[in-house]
């Protein structure tokens, strides 16, 4: 390749820098506002570029036991229990389908593939959850999204790539299918299992619509619904201590930061493996 002119290189650098700033700047502004003390927010409104006297006042207020604390517990609970169950069902289903030629594996695979192609639609889904008596239950949030067919296909593709001689050898030694799964297959598939587990966890954490659809009791709201009510629709956040209320905007931004933080923490890992996962799916799908 010919080398680029300095002017072109500068232009490219400039464009990419601007792109990155457009993404990063809003996060910094949100964090700054959440850390600003009441005086600064009262004076400047949302226009806080840097907290002059940083304080954790807003965080203390939302963690004092009000609606945000409770919603956070709900979200953490649903995410942990949901991701664990999802991962378990997905792994088992993918493993059950990973021996071509085993009994009924062909039709079951078709059932999985078609589930990726056709989604049932909002209303029938709501009616099903309702008929099962799961409205206003945390289980609705988990059971409405337990298995993602695409993840099953990605994981099955990974299992099929494992050296089959290893599995055959274990079988000759008398190992049962479950022993093979837990002693041989899973230890060799740690990366893909972790990525798909995180994939589910992020989906449960971000879940907004099922909560909106199935949860009407606002004492059961997860964090996403709290964000909608108190930040997007701008209702007043109730905190445990009603006498000393920090300005609304820092409470809102603190809540927002709390919702973003878990994603930021797992992001480096996601980013490293996600693109690869997509490619496996695209090639093998």
């Amino acid at each position: 390749m010919t080398t680029a002119l300095p002017a072109t290189r500068a232009a490219k650098g400039l464009i990419l820098t601007v792109c990155c700033l457009v993404v990063v700047f809003p996060f910094l502004a949100v964090i700054s506002t959440s850390l600003a003390d009441e005086r600064q927010v009262a004076e400047a409104g949302g226009y806080v570029l840097w907290p002059q006297r940083p304080s954790f006042y807003a965080y203390e207020a939302i963690f004092e036991g009000g609606v945000v604390t409770r919603a956070l517990l709900v979200s953490v609970g649903v995410t942990v229990v949901g991701a664990t169950l999802s991962l378990l069902c997905t792994t088992l289903l993918a493993y059950g389908l990973s021996r071509p030629g085993s009994l009924a594996s062909r039709p079951i695979l078709m059932v999985v593939l078609f589930s990726v192609l056709f989604s049932p639609g909002i209303i029938p889904m709501y009616l099903t959850v309702k008929q099962l008596g799961l409205l206003d239950s945390y289980w609705a949030l988990i059971l409405s999204a337990l298995v993602n067919g695409f993840n099953v296909i990605v994981m099955r593709a990974f299992f099929l790539e494992l050296p089959q001689e290893l599995l055959d050898a274990a079988k000759i030694d008398g190992a049962s299918e479950l022993t093979i799964l837990f002693r041989i297959v899973l230890p060799l598939s740690k990366a893909v299992v972790a990525v798909i587990g995180l994939f589910y966890a992020v989906a449960y954490w971000n879940n907004f619509f099922s909560a909106l659809l199935y949860i009407t009791d606002n004492s059961k709201y997860p964090l996403s619904l709290i964000l909608r009510t108190y930040v997007v629709d701008n209702a007043t956040i109730g905190t445990g201590d009603a006498t000393q209320v920090p300005p609304q905007q820092s409470l809102q931004m603190a809540t927002l930061v709390v919702s973003i933080l878990p994603i930021l923490l797992v992001y480096p890992f996601l980013q490293k493996h996600f693109a690869k996962g997509i490619m496996i799916g695209a090639v093998k799908g």
Binding site: L92, L93, R99, L103, S144, E177
Partner: peptide
Amino acid sequence: DWLLLACAAPGLVWLLVF
């Protein structure tokens, strides 16, 4: 293959119901 089928069962039942 019954163990493989048993592994697939929870996910399969979920797909059918939900």
